[in-house]
Simulated assay, not measured.
Amino acid sequence: MTVAPHTLELGYSPCPNDTFIFYALQAGLVPAPAPVHEVLAGVQTLNEWAAAGRLPLTKISYRAAFEVLDHYALLRAGGALGRGAGPLVVARRPLEDLSGLRVASPGRLTTAELLLRLAWPQAVPVPVPFREVMAAVERGEYGGQPLDAGLIIHESRFTYPQHGLVAVRDMGSWWEQETGLPLPLGAILVRRDLPADVQRAAEQAIRDSVAYAWAHQAEALAYVRQHAGEDDETVVRGHIDLYVNEYSLDLGDTGERAVQELYRRGVEAGALRAGASALFLP
């Protein structure tokens, strides 16, 4: 007989899609294998914590998830896949080719930088905290070094024109043209050392949390607004509508194929190491 943990820490970002998805779960409104304690942090911090195996449940980028498969398994609910929902490359002026150019990146372990490496292997990623990317590109420098363009994610997709920037390429559209598949962005992971029944129950609890948020949107949005970095209601709703979809409820065959294809291409390009562990929770 396995024993469930007394509490389950769940790490996710304060971005509207995450807080919308996990509202019901952290509030105890859906059945779970143990009370869930929220741990809010930025995507780069969550990626780093996952590398150390700190949290039993965590939302991180798919790029980072591929690095920690030895001690985490991917869940099929709660993540972010989408069409027309990828990172944007922005610049002060139109650009056609980023080869050899310096591009602000929200982090080495982000899906955004992996896509940059797949599309433009000769581009030069420059790490910049994601909330500072637009301002850095607007200035044309970061840390005293020049910048030619930047990768933006989250709410920045909706606000970059306010910084006088233009879209160079939607990396989600590029991925879809290349593969015909939705773009994997954010993954939900469960630590492999948890009892098998706890892992499965956690996946179902996340699925139930998504369904609850859809059924009680006004209630979920009140929680979202507590943590959103953007006050504009239209931006917040646009963010949720873009990143919370049928793949958040369940990846299905198409979603799983998209994740496997991103992994395969990353390994083929030398951006990821090939691992022996299965990607998904059995």
Rank of each mutant, 00 (worst) to 15 (best):
A32R: 04
V124Y: 04
D208E: 15
T58V: 15
A85R: 05
D250T: 12
L69A: 02
E261D: 05
A167R: 15
V210C: 07
P31H: 05
W214S: 01
V124K: 13
T58S: 07
R207M: 10
A34D: 03
P282W: 09
D232H: 03
R237A: 08
A32Q: 08
A202I: 11
R92F: 12
A85F: 03
L95N: 09
G180E: 08
W175E: 01
G270H: 07
A201S: 04
E246H: 14
R207P: 03
V126G: 07
E138K: 15
W175S: 06
P182H: 07
L281W: 10
I21W: 01
S156W: 11
P106Q: 02
P14F: 13
L74T: 07
R200M: 07
M134K: 15
E246L: 11
R207V: 08
R63M: 09
R169S: 15
A274H: 07
L88F: 13
L114T: 13
Y247L: 06
R54C: 06
D231I: 05
V103Y: 11
Y263R: 03
L115R: 05
P35M: 01
D148M: 09
L183V: 05
V39D: 09
L272R: 01
D148E: 13
W174R: 06
W49I: 02
A167W: 05
A85D: 14
L114W: 02
Q122V: 03
P16F: 09
W120S: 14
P33N: 03
L242C: 07
A52Q: 15
D208F: 01
A32I: 04
A201T: 02
R131L: 12
V190M: 06
R191M: 03
A187C: 03
A50S: 10
Y62A: 00
P5C: 14
I152C: 11
Q204C: 01
E261Q: 11
R54V: 15
E155M: 05
V210R: 04
G164N: 10
R169Y: 11
L183R: 05
L25I: 10
F130K: 12
E9R: 15
T159G: 00
G86S: 14
G229T: 12
L281F: 10
G229P: 04
P195A: 11
R76F: 00
L57F: 00
R63H: 12
L118Q: 01
R131S: 10
L116S: 09
G140A: 01
V103I: 15
T45N: 08
A222L: 13
A220Y: 04
R169P: 00
F66K: 01
G143F: 10
A218P: 05
D241N: 13
L101K: 04
L147F: 07
Y263A: 04
V210H: 03
P31Y: 05
V259L: 03
A220M: 03
E246C: 08
F20S: 03
G143E: 11
Q44S: 14
A149K: 14
D193A: 05
D193R: 03
N17F: 14
L101M: 12
R200S: 11
T254R: 09
R237P: 01
R76N: 11
R257I: 01
L81N: 06
R192D: 08
W214P: 02
G84P: 06
H216F: 00
G79A: 08
T111I: 04
A135N: 10
